[in-house]
Design a protein around this nucleic acid. Sequence first.
DNA 1: AACCGCCTCCCCCGCCCGGGGGAGAGGGGC
DNA 2: GCCCCTCTCCCCCGGGCGGGGGAGGCGGTT
Lengths: 219, 219
Amino acid sequence: MSAPIRVVLADDERMVRTALRVILDAEPDLAVVGEAATGAEAVSVVRAERPDVVLMDVRMPEIDGIRATEQILAGMADAPRIVVVTTFENDSYVYDALRVGAAGFLLKRAAAEELVSAVRLVARSDSLLYPAAVRCLAAEHARHRPPAAPAWAARLTDREAEVLRLVATGLTNAEIADRIGVGPATVKTHVAAVLAKLGARDRTQAVILAYESGFVRTG
Amino acid sequence: MSAPIRVVLADDERMVRTALRVILDAEPDLAVVGEAATGAEAVSVVRAERPDVVLMDVRMPEIDGIRATEQILAGMADAPRIVVVTTFENDSYVYDALRVGAAGFLLKRAAAEELVSAVRLVARSDSLLYPAAVRCLAAEHARHRPPAAPAWAARLTDREAEVLRLVATGLTNAEIADRIGVGPATVKTHVAAVLAKLGARDRTQAVILAYESGFVRTG
DNA sequence: AACCGCCTCCCCCGCCCGGGGGAGAGGGGC
DNA sequence: GCCCCTCTCCCCCGGGCGGGGGAGGCGGTT
């Protein structure tokens, strides 16, 4: 399994950091290599340790997690994947996090198992975003378990899910438009919404996320 | 499972048609709705029956399977998926078939199970090409079973396979170029080769084929 | 009645991508 | 020696795509 995944924790509450460290260090393939209590500290620790993954709290003194994320991603070649940690799912930070390039985000109430699998997936998928709705895709695929377990945000609408399914069969926007009987502009809108919610850069990444989340099944 | 997959058989040898019919009709979700012994007949039968899938022999009187495929795909809106059937794997027809838009091809010596799964996959993946190299991808993935079982043609080179793997992680051509240390133009060339060999229209379809063939694994 | 989420469609813009060519270098097989 | 394959890189070109806006209608919630 080669080298372990190196993780840095950034949270102003010591208890949270400790909890995360306990959870992550229990996994043989994960190694917490640094902690930070402020955004500024997070930036310097990350530059020093060059981890694979950063768990970044949004609310922190001096510099919030969003700005810290921005600075890390802007100032580093071969920057780590950053997972933004929030308390409330409809946090407006969520979209800011996507915008500045966070690899994903999860809620503090997420189960330990979700946490470690998120870290692994983010580290593994290498230049691929893994945000919010991905888990919702899996949840939707598993027959609408409502808002109980899904500790993630940004659900796709029915139309968006339909469009994503068609994107994942290799259709162009124009073909999707013909198929569902709307204009090409409408499909563009839906695709754009899907990309934003999934944090995907283009339809190719969206398809990959659809497969990886189980939203579409292989053959 | 809704309506069965409607199949038309086009082959000049009656025995071959019968054999195919027996194999396909044994499957509850497949229904052979027409047969043709010549290319011209194939065109008219397909227009009349409007099947989901056509199994098209390459060598037929009057009009060969390639031209028949061309005419069917050109002259019909919502055309069926056409699988071209060949006897020899290095048949030059293979590339012609790809060029005119065949959804895939397979060898007459293919196992019955391969046949039915090919029909299902082609029918399912709806506007998605399923040609040659796809099975080779699966074969490569399954640790180089040489040229024994692979009843399909068009192998990827090592470089092409590497590029496809990177495409399937969501990278752009420029990012792939940086990663493997070559120029962007070179990556373009490799990607173009992959698309041609897989019969994919764009990188999105290539990724889908990579997943469906098992060339890349989910999770 | 006001609000919000969803669906529909429009504009402009820039870029990445894919198609069509070609070309040179190196290696292996005949 | 010659050929063929692979890998490398170049050109031009068109189009699909994604980003950034905005706008109107419709139904459910408050």
